[in-house]
Write a protein that binds this DNA or RNA. Sequence first.
RNA 1: GCGCCAGUAGCUCAGUUGGAUAGAGCAACGGCCUUCUAAGCCGUGGGUCUGGGGUUCGAAUCCCUACUGGCGUGCCA
Length: 550
Amino acid sequence: MIKNRIFKDIKFAFEDLKLELNENFTVEIPNSVNHGDFSTNACLISAKPNKMSPKIIAEKVIELLKTKKMYREIEIAGPGFINFHIKPSHFKKILVSVNEEGDDYGRTTYGKEAKILIEFISANPTGPLNIVSARAAAYGDSLYRIMSFAGFRPIREFYINDAGNQVDILAESVELRYRELHNEDIGEFPVEAYHGEYIIDLAALLNTTEGSKLLHISERDRLTKMKEFALAEIHNMQVESLEKFDVQFDNWVSEKSLRAQGVVEEVLSFLAEADCTFEMEEAIWFNSTKFGDDKNRVLMKADGTITYIVPDLAYHLTKLQRGNDVLIDVLGPDHHGYVPRLRAGIQALGYDDSCLEVIFLQQVNLFDQGEKVKMSKRLGKMVTMDDLIDEVGKDAARFFFINRKPSAHLNFDLELAKKKTSENPVFYCQYAHARICSIIKKAEKDKLKLANFDEKYLKKLNKDDEMLIMRKLGDFQHVLCGIADSREPHRLAEYLIELAGMFHKYYQKYTISNKRYKELSIARLYLINAVRIVLKNGLNLIGVSAPTSM
RNA sequence: GCGCCAGUAGCUCAGUUGGAUAGAGCAACGGCCUUCUAAGCCGUGGGUCUGGGGUUCGAAUCCCUACUGGCGUGCCA
């Protein structure tokens, strides 16, 4: 990586000159072509600690680096930037790496195998996954893929809230529909119950195996049966939807089984012994304000049942005990009020809460024909993840979800996602890939084969546009490491759109393959094949297919 | 009231973590297929980066403040 070598060279130069270096300096691809191939602000931001003008520092640094073979030219610019011009031969080395490493190009050991637990979706097992879960799925899974590729050791985890109030309501909802099926008068369907069609389907499905048998057992047994049945069915439904979305999990953690293991009691007694609880109005409270929460929270209600925070805290305790370095929780926007008490709990349990990182995904609004699609949970009018995949396809859905930074609201344009035209960014990228495949295939018929490539042909590549593409390809690792650190996969979508754009322009401007110029053609095929590899690897990291023809 | 997120071109959004002249794509207008995929490319127009202060060599980016929009502020999960 050229960028890394420049980093090292600068560090070396400062050391040699016995100057203090502000380690936050950057090496960037400048936005203007007049500013060289790479530029650094190292001298600017190190001016103060050295009490020297940035330009004088830059002069000294340049004097030292001039001897290095990689640079064609180094110059001072503006207030004290250093602009580097790289020799073409060094850009061409990138092409060789890409072509030789193939599917592994871009993979690094950057993350040093740090264990990162990514918890995402964790939707209630009370219904089909909705579009917010779909966004979380696309985000969490892409982050996982990118972090793996960048040398971290991430784990994907889904927490199932299969205990508590909402699953009781689920059981009651199915039970009512079941009795309705047997022509019982159930009165008006309760407002707080689950109204979706899927509840009726579940009752019907249960009826095919059990018939009217369940009407004759006790209500308690019936509800238990309903609950187990519904939870299992809905879980399978969710797993199926996720499979269609190419999203898999390493662990599914059940709240019910956590409770059964006694972790909940452990947490309660630990907090009591640590003097973090008190009793008031027959309830047991956690004095979370001591740890920065804005009010104290109930742990156990007067009726002896526990609140949500307790098992969730127990769950986070197990994450810590498993030796993870960083815990990433991907949550919906409506959960941000919840985080201070979670942090308080982690501190009370004796851990540093700085390992907990919470990513809030903002809400998703669907638009169709310019109109906002209205949804109502209460009326069961939800657009599910399955609906969305059926409507626009997995590739478009995943790309669109990832194409926006997590903290921004997402306006999902269904009409655009369905369009198979250039307006649709996912097709723009896929088309570039397909186009390259087609050119390579066509060239083979003309006896211009990549297999016949020889490194000496690289001298035929001497256009500025070609250097720009090589530089872009060489930036891939750097982009991925930045994404892993910032947890912002949307940058990969940006990168791919830019790379696809560079290729489309290049294709338009130059003839890539022509029988009359064998060496030039094969060299250019080698170049676009590298573009193809990076597009494919990048698309794969966001779960989007790279078609060979369209 | 308090807290979180956002406010950049007519629309949807980027902006390399404080860098050089703020960029794409749509939409509008004008061009490019006898040649490798026109699902593409080229060109033109479009900006008080919500307003106002501050920090410094340098601010869309950091701090303060006002405004606007979304969400939260359960002994729900």
